[in-house]
């Protein structure tokens, strides 16, 4: 599990460079996410373009990441079909703020997500 981050337009963009967020990697995601977000107080966006699969352990790690942000939302971009399916089946798509692409998220200056018209 490898995360990398950069700040774009005042948004911390965290890219997941792993194909799977699963039981073998979930704990590392939580730890690295905490390190990367510790000193940042603005919007946080995770780029999930490279993530082809997520199991319920990975989903649990995403919820842990959201809790680390305290009162901030966790924005997610570019969910691949299997990941989008797991979010939809568990209704977690209502808990996180989802965008089709990182660019869409950065253009949405309020960070309200694809559902907000």
């Amino acid at each position: 599990m490898q995360l990398s981050s950069k700040v774009v337009k005042d948004v911390l963009v965290i890219k997941v460079d792993s194909k799977r967020i699963d039981a073998a990697g979930a704990i590392h995601l939580k730890d690295q996410f905490r390190d990367l977000t510790m000193d940042f107080e603005g919007r946080v966006l995770m780029d999930l373009q490279n993530v082809e699969f997520m199991d319920s352990s990975g989903l649990g790690a995403m919820v842990s990441a959201l809790k680390i942000l305290d009162n901030r939302k966790l924005e997610l971009a570019d969910l691949q079909p299997a990941v989008a399916k797991v979010f939809a089946l568990t209704r977690m798509d209502k808990v996180f703020v989802l965008f089709d692409t990182v660019e869409d998220a950065l253009e949405d200056t309020k960070g309200q997500g694809a559902d907000a018209a």
Partner: peptide, 25 residues
Amino acid sequence: ELPKIDVEVSDLPEGGFGWYLIRTL
């Protein structure tokens, strides 16, 4: 059942989805 998600963020479930997914699919 699907764990409740209309709760405070600090009370959101971090597990309990596995058998729900298996049964659903």
